[in-house]
Write a protein that binds this DNA or RNA. Sequence first.
DNA 1: AGCTGTGGTTCAAATAATGAACCATAAGCG
DNA 2: CGCTTATGGTTCATTATTTGAACCACAGCT
Lengths: 261, 261
Amino acid sequence: MSTIGKALALLDTLSRLDKEAGLTDIARLCALDKATARRFLVELEKHGFVEQDLETRRYRIGSAPVRLARIREARFPLLRIAIPFIRTLAESSTETVHLSEFSAGRLSTVHVEDSPRAHRITVDVGSFLPFHATASGLAFLAFCPQAEIDEALAKPLEKFTDHTVVDPQLVRVMLDETAARGFSISHNGLEAGVVSTAAPIRTPNGHPIGCVAIAAPFSRITKAAIHEFGAQAAAAANAISEKYYGSERPMGTIPEIRRTD
Amino acid sequence: MSTIGKALALLDTLSRLDKEAGLTDIARLCALDKATARRFLVELEKHGFVEQDLETRRYRIGSAPVRLARIREARFPLLRIAIPFIRTLAESSTETVHLSEFSAGRLSTVHVEDSPRAHRITVDVGSFLPFHATASGLAFLAFCPQAEIDEALAKPLEKFTDHTVVDPQLVRVMLDETAARGFSISHNGLEAGVVSTAAPIRTPNGHPIGCVAIAAPFSRITKAAIHEFGAQAAAAANAISEKYYGSERPMGTIPEIRRTD
DNA sequence: AGCTGTGGTTCAAATAATGAACCATAAGCG
DNA sequence: CGCTTATGGTTCATTATTTGAACCACAGCT
């Protein structure tokens, strides 16, 4: 693997830790030599991607990504556009609504509007959403070209709960249903007791870039309500797609796109 | 230079471009071979730090920094803490107030609250603030250890306007004044017709991490008003420092700190 | 004292980065 | 139409960088 790749993987590892980490831990987690890890950290620090607490000598994510993120957002303001829709959806559904974005081969949570109810689902910003085990993942994949679906399902699928579907063939059935409906539904895929529905935000040529999802406790949700939420998520996702990419060809087609209707 | 450093420098260059850039331009701007630039871009793209527009083949900042920035902010929420203060200051002063953060050896703008007035100063988020030519830069440097001041003033100082002070000795005088007052004042340092005042946000041991600055058109500002704004900026910066780092030792001292009184 | 854990450094050996020359394609033009 | 000049992208022998076992220095503990 390239040096750059390893350094960025270190950054990724560091970002997924709950707390600041010491040199030895970082080296071990990244399967790097201590000397190598240190050189990477020093180099990343020079550019502001990590910073070292001078007292504890531990490392954390620096402020350079903040600057880059701001520039990215200024030029490509998905969040600014999406948040009002997410918020509206959270208010009307009174359930937790979250927005995810595809990045570096994975779907990660970029914004969450919590349900106002005491009994609610919580989703962490920054958390990853496995393709086969979350409504967001299914919604994303269902609208991807076949090649990407094959690639995602070629790897072994992790079983997060008793109900996680790990058979690629069954996942494909769910993808077909999702493509047909326009939104996905996931029962207890990642965590027990949670039901979610999601719909993809897509480029003008139909390729997904992220998802809008609604998550609710299984105990209080009827089948009809799930479908209603799904339809609302799809409407919001489409509205975001349209606003994000301008009004040029709201929804085009790419050859491989999956459609049933 | 290390490969990682070169790749991150490429990312930095890309971030400072106004628009998306092609391979040849990027290679030229970074003084890299086309093949090398391409390998870097591919590697950065794998990790989501850049993305390529599939139609124009041009590259832009990707969404990975957005994820990292969110995590950084979640754990280290300077902005969340600072924004209310900045906003209050913008309202009370009716001038443009901005917040900068030190990162990768430079001071960059991370938040701006615009003046409600029609005639106002505009500051771009993401823009860099030279140490010798802006109120923020002076305020930051004035509270740095002597070694860092020497380092910053060792390089040639760029002349942005007719009034930019580029003589290191004169800059040192301004730093002494700033340290004595607790806030800096800059007249026409970066742009003509602008007067700014700034104060540093500091760690508990006194080291600056960023600045709060107020910028106003020279034409409508009296000397008394500038000093009043400066005092307000200093109060806001101290309040942010205190809230950001908890209430432990609101303002300590480091041996090398500059004091005139 | 000695032990064990940190963070951090060194330098010969191993490996990955480099870039001149290359291809393919597209646009501009006499 | 063919020629020129751009572009993005690729190859592979040469070269420079990365690598990691062994090494300090220090701190806390028994």
